[in-house]
Nucleic acid binder design. Structure first.
Lengths: 338, 338
DNA sequence: TTAAAGGAGCTAAACGTTTCGCGTTAGGAG
DNA sequence: CTCCTAACGCGAAACGTTTAGCTCCTTTAA
């Protein structure tokens, strides 16, 4: 059986002091120097560690934060978590990570699970659609920070990319280079990021007096397959677009697969701007132009806001942190001579 | 402040029963039907949830499992975790995920952190090198399952790919196609997987009576940069290899970058076999031949073994689970006419 | 010399469960 | 009608902490 470790009681016995004094020492209180030495010795000798359960029971805090993302196989999200986890850990918090595999039901279930685990706070990439279960959590006064997507219905701190401008700038680069028929492979129609990116796409057309052809706006699922299928459809159009803007990483992969299979020459036959993952951009040939989200910064910001809320500092609540993206134009974008 | 939720006491009061009876009900004991109904009603009305801290304090279990991997940005590991997490959750366990960013010190620190968090079990991709801190955890009788890498010094359940045969088969495909100078981009010299893969590389040479040129075995860091650098070095050799076998995903990326930059024609000038990530394999052009590890299965196996050990079933301990890999030969491998 | 002030330590209650051992009850058998 | 046997319910202790409020002692200033 598991060896039971020393308790505060053992330390008290060893040192001849009372439990209260040991507790005081542990929590940074003042004790006499000779006692401090004795306690430290005892802790070392007995290999004493605070029982976080007992502590949590008293303090009503688990020093645990739940992180809920759509998929652990999505490097965009796991990279964010990597930062979140490291920052939280520095403040003594551990991170329970769950993914909900893009299922709204699972999201609900896992959120509930996290609440049962009595996490002190939650960082979540909300799925959208029905959000009542998130509201339920808010009602329990558990701090929540949204990442990547906003839920208008719920007052909450949120950290995300400036998706509108990201799309704006990406498409603008194409317009500048003479493209007039620009296809966009967007995400699911009801997801926040999709709407923002499409908004940017439309606005830049308007600002440059380019007509928006609705048939060039196609909605996918943010997965590889839909990127593939939609690109295929674009190719089969009577007058296909001269360039494509793909709005997330997985669909970018799918689009490239379709391009490769159809032996389409980039950028001569078609220009391409993708999304996320610099490494990928460098690996494909010709090198891919992409929109880059500030992944590190998103994680950092989210973690810090949550830490602030955990300290009961609700200054600026609810804050919306819209972080700037970058655009990298590489060989996959060509110029149209008109 | 956080709303304080109903306790077992409140349920007792509501139902007029004693605390002990409620507890009994919660834990699946028998209660009279009318009482059961009342309790269920009370739980619903009061929104009662078991306080896991209090429970854990009594039972000495946290229903929490720690997972420690080298990097959360490595999709190979996060995919495994995705499975692990889902299986464990079905059994009521939550998963605390940490990465140690390839640093042995951080590994130690985070392992310690997990122990302090009183996890019931640990799944770890060990870094290798000094392993005394892992032994310390074992000595506390906390079940540990190793993933991906074996530590000979420690008796432990381990789940990994059959790396030796993976390399054997990959290189064999090259030999069959007439290649005689096959470069291998291996991982760090002291990592278990590296050794196994190099062993396979050497053995297949011997079995086919092909001479092993030591200068064709180069050791990297399992990161993108070293894949890039080593491929560069191969190119600059007086008589460069006709084919390259890269032994993990990140280095495969790096290698392809170098190939693209040097405008090397695949497979005419050089054949390439990479590692992991089917999606990548399909996206690059020409389509990449790769070794595929049974990612799903690794996670599943590890989770199940850990669950078994958590139930104190030590049948077959320590078990070594070596799972079969697959090889996909695509366009990046060509035949040498001799 | 004495009083005030402040530091350090102590006692004891409390957090929300589980669990042991005992008391109560219902219902069937005789 | 009585007795016995399960089944069910209960009281109380225990898990390892934190913390409020108290006491005691030392120090300092008048």
């Amino acid at each position: 059986m598991r060896k039971i470790s020393a308790t505060i009681k053992d330390v008290a016995k060893y040192t001849g002091l009372s439990i209260a004094t040991i507790s005081k020492y542990i929590n940074g209180g003042n004790v006499l120097d000779k006692n401090r030495k004795k306690i430290e010795e005892a802790i070392k000798v007995l290999d004493f560690r605070v029982n976080e359960l007992a502590r949590g029971l008293k303090t009503n805090r688990t020093m645990t934060v739940g992180v809920l993302i759509p998929s652990l196989k999505n490097i965009f999200f796991t990279s964010i978590i990597s930062n979140v986890e490291n920052i939280l850990l520095k403040h003594g918090y551990s991170t329970i990570v769950c993914d909900y595999r893009e299922s709204s039901n699972l999201e609900k279930e896992k959120l509930n699970f996290l609440v049962n685990k009595m996490v002190d706070g939650i960082i979540v990439v909300p799925h959208g659609g029905d959000v009542s279960h998130i509201q339920d959590v808010r009602d329990k006064n558990i701090p929540i920070v949204f990442i990547d997507r906003m839920i208008k219905e719920i007052d909450c701190d949120v950290v995300l990319s400036d998706n509108l401008n990201a799309a704006y700038e990406a498409v603008e680069q194409l317009i500048i280079r003479g493209h007039r028929r620009i296809g966009i492979i967007a995400g699911p129609k009801d997801v926040y990021t999709t709407k923002e990116r499409v908004k940017g796409y439309i606005r830049v057309h308007e600002d440059h007096d380019v007509n928006v052809d609705e048939s060039l706006i196609k909605y996918g699922d943010y997965d590889i397959k839909s990127g593939y299928n939609i690109l295929q459809k674009f190719i089969e159009m009577d007058s296909p677009p001269t360039s494509i803007f793909v709005t997330n990483y997985e669909m970018t992969l799918g689009a490239i697969m379709a391009i490769n299979e159809n032996d389409i020459k980039i950028p001569d036959q078609m220009s391409l701007v993708g999304f996320d993952n610099i490494q990928m951009a460098k690996v494909v040939k010709p090198s891919l132009s992409i929109v880059v989200q500030p992944i590190e910064q998103i994680g950092e910001t989210a973690a810090n806001i949550l830490l602030k809320r955990l300290k009961n500092d609700y200054e600026g609540f609810p804050s919306t942190n819209r972080l700037k993206t970058e655009i990298m134009i590489k060989d996959s974008v060509g110029t149209i001579r008109s």
